[in-house]
Design a protein around this nucleic acid. Structure first.
Lengths: 119, 119
DNA sequence: ATGAACTATGAACTTAGGTTTATAGCAACA
DNA sequence: TGTTGCTATAAACCTAAGTTCATAGTTCAT
């Protein structure tokens, strides 16, 4: 699978796919090169990138993801566990905040937020 | 209450408080000026800013928030409702993604993610 | 076999969300 | 009354996360 197809299937621009690779969040196993130096992707890349997208849209920075995924670094299980558990805590915190936000938004609609000009 | 106290109570740098004001996401009712042009905040600002923080850390951009909160614009109830309901949908989508992300992270720990060097 | 479409790289550019700096007017306590 | 600290503004600066550009090699349909 070439980069154009990955781009279409993941809805990420080609430039972003290349950018992510430069940032070391695309494991080597998923990207080889053909005789013209074109990237050749494994099928699994699509699902993997969907996961990456979720993490990035949620709470992870590229740098944090890179820390976790970059094979060069070769982190121990213990090191990964600490990062991941910390991150899961952060996600749970965001989930709480999101629920508060939903309530705040609904309050805006109902005119309960006191700065509002009356509707 | 002066800016320094708001900063301490909300854990936002003074520069950020001024920045948010410039971006029109702090309703006028909450910030007056004294005879020296110093900002004087109402008590409610603290809770309000906590809500703002939640929304920003969740999914809102400053520009979107400004659209909703800027009184100069004077949006109708209908216009606000559309924005808010759209946003609530987006939040619910993020919540689903977060649950997926938690699962992905746990899979990384358990070595279920196939690019992983075995732990 | 040639032009349109696809691929590559490095470097410059962009945007959002702040932060820092330079400069200056009050304040408050010793 | 002076000096340390808080406040103000405008403008420059910064970082993350991409995007665009310039240049060049490859491929595929006609």
């Amino acid at each position: 699978m070439k980069i154009n197809e990955v781009s279409k299937r993941t809805n990420l621009p080609i430039s972003t796919l290349r950018f992510y690779e430069r940032k070391n969040i695309i494991p080597n196993e998923f990207v080889k090169r053909d005789e013209n130096n074109y990237r050749v992707y494994a099928e699994e890349i699509v699902e993997f990138i969907e996961d990456i997208k979720s993490l990035l849209s949620a709470d992870f920075s590229i740098e944090e993801l890179s820390l976790l995924l970059n094979q060069q670094l070769n982190l121990s299980y213990e090191e990964k566990r600490i990062i991941v558990e910390q991150k899961i805590k952060e996600i749970e915190d965001i989930q709480r905040r999101l629920n508060k936000s939903k309530k705040f938004l609904k309050d805006i609609l109902e005119g309960k937020v006191n700065f509002q000009t009356k509707c």
